[in-house]
Design a protein around this nucleic acid. Structure first.
Lengths: 368, 368
DNA sequence: ATGAAAGCGCTAACAG
DNA sequence: CTGTTAGCGCTTTCAT
């Protein structure tokens, strides 16, 4: 064994230092970390002891280079949060932001349980820093939330490693994709209002036209109208950002008679919970009673909805599962790169509370 | 130039492939990605074109190995979430979980703005997978939230790279640390109850004895009692998990006369907002009026508190800033490894709402 | 069960 | 401004 000393113990310790100290070869040191069982116990102990004494930590970069896998999965998500607002905040964080938190959590947990760590990077509203480039070189595969990265870049990178698109339509057909059944959920919710509550004069407040989720929900709304033989509106009654403030504004517009028809509709369906909660607040401020004067519904199932007055009827989507599915898809494809692309559509569930007129089984909270 | 072709274009493209195609040296290809300005425009274009055609993506591992920096910062955080509950949930997620989301967000943003990506890994309640080992080899430095990793490992790794401890006491004195002024916040809040509302019969519901934050808050509570000349309790009146359910239980115990003194105290201070909201619910269910019959306060400043009935008086902590400070500290130390350790204590702020007896809406009587 | 040697893909001086 | 030449620290055959 002539693994001649390199530097006289300078800088951070490497396999060479550990090997020298334990009087074994670097290959053995490497084995101790990769497959401990392939090394005799006494030898292993010697190596571990030397490593401990030296404060040795394997270099992820070197391992990655040599083995061509990093043990890291990536996620690109949108960051719409107002940098001004500090948190814990006033509850008006953008829905997409909260949503991303859940997906991150779901992915992190699923990844960890399979031995991967999670590398995350958000795409600024404005700054188009090349996210893909930042992540791609470091991971074994990654997930991108809808509309956060340039399709071109995605296309290029997806030729080199597993990529799954999340929470939006499958922009690139040949990629795995996971989304929730927005359309079906909104259809069911609308049907509930029409069939179970006998409401026929409805209004839908949509999100920005470039929000795939919000558009899908509108399609579901249209479906339900069509199914019930009601007129099918070609466009949402109103549109707004997916924020509480926009919801308030929509409600205000309606109260002021700014809607397409005089007077209030029987029900107001909003594209997400944030907006719905805003509408609830505005109606309360104007003395409009919910659900007596108008039914109100949201979409997402955020905690805030359950605390609203009245509690908000909504559609709950399994946001954490999106992240979990993403990891499953990624790991699966890492194992079988040539497998056919698999689109996953996660089911949603109706949450019927008081804001649509359904009885609330809980002891009515005291009004503030 | 005799950069003889290596393999006939197999596998994922490397600098060699790009160089060959663009008819330049690998050094030039490398330069185009590191300092584009150091390369003449025409040359640069040639390289970029070749890279595009080949679908070239720089290998993070190789870069990391060669340059000894990865451009990645890490975070170890606790994961207490019940895997059963899906999200968006019922609002009873563990406070620590929500808290971690904000820190992640703060760190991610701060990191990105400085050119770093964020690698995250949670420590299971049970599974003691070696987090540090997972992360350490891949990052240029990392932050660990209180009590998520073995102090021994931390000690070892911190000798090799920047490490900052978060949201808890500085367990390792020689490390940078950032925490929130829990003690001062609780002291101020308690003082407000005593001085401004004239309450003297108080009760404090603490968290688990092994929660540093909760313990700090109790110390602040003791401080205020001492300052006001009131008896200083050696222990919290009650203790519980930092959850809504535990808050309900505490309130129930008090209502049932299970407290140390007969009857209700004048004020109930709980170790965090989740618990406080639970207490609010339980009091409402028993017809106990807040704040007329009893004042209630929390700690954290979560959105739920503002929606509660009555709106919850609390102490808001800048959770996102914790993450931002962590990055600042890390980047700073990467630049100056020998700098003295710097402990950062972030200020908190009182949020006075109706649950303590302050009129609502309040033009916040900003004390503290 | 352990060792020797050859890279993995890129950056970093140093030349020119 | 561009090319040459060494490694960076580890995994991997292939021997032994």
């Amino acid at each position: 064994m002539v693994t001649a000393a390199r530097k006289p113990e300078t800088g951070t310790p490497t396999v060479y230092d550990v090997a020298e100290r334990a009087r074994v070869s670097i290959a053995t040191v490497s084995r101790v970390y990769r497959s401990p069982d392939a090394v005799r116990a006494p030898t292993r102990e010697k190596v571990l002891a030397a490593a401990r004494e030296l404060g040795y930590v394997p270099s992820g970069s070197a391992r990655g280079l040599a083995s061509r896998t990093t043990g890291i999965l990536g996620l690109c998500f949108p960051d719409y949060t107002d940098p001004e607002t500090d948190t814990p905040g006033d509850g008006d964080e953008n829905a997409a932001t909260l949503y991303a938190d859940h997906i991150i959590r779901g992915m992190e947990r699923a990844a960890r349980s399979r031995g991967y760590a999670l590398l995350i990077a958000a795409s600024l509203r404005d700054g188009p820093t090349n996210l893909v480039a930042t992540l791609a070189g470091h991971v074994d595969g990654f997930a991108v939330m809808s509309r956060t990265v340039d399709a071109k870049d995605l296309e290029t990178v997806s030729r080199r490693m597993p990529v799954v698109t999340l929470a939006g339509p499958a922009e690139l057909g040949h990629l795995d994709n996971v989304q929730v059944d927005n359309r079906d959920g909104q259809r069911e919710l609308t049907r509930h209002l029409i069939t179970d509550h006998g409401l026929t004069d409805l209004a839908f407040v949509g999100g920005p036209a470039d929000s795939p989720d919000a558009e899908e929900r509108f399609l579901g709304y249209q479906d339900a109208c069509r199914d019930a033989g009601l007129p099918v509106p070609p466009e949402p009654t109103l549109r707004g950002a997916l924020t509480r403030t926009a919801g308030r504004e929509a409600a205000r517009t309606l109260v002021a008679g700014g809607g397409p028809t005089p007077g209030l509709p029987q029900a107001l369906l909003l594209a997400n919970d944030q907006m719905a909660v805003g509408a609830l607040e505005e109606f309360a401020a104007h003395g409009v009673r919910v659900p007596q004067d108008i039914a109100v519904t949201g979409f997402d199932g955020i905690p805030l909805g359950a605390m609203a007055h009245p509690p908000l009827t909504t559609v709950r989507q399994p946001s954490r599962r999106i992240g979990e599915e993403a990891v499953a898809l990624l790991v699966d494809r890492i194992a079988a790169p040539q497998r056919d692309p698999r689109p996953v559509v996660l089911p949603v569930s109706l949450v019927l509370r008081a804001s649509c007129g359904c009885a609330e089984p809980v002891p009515a909270p005291r009004r503030g």
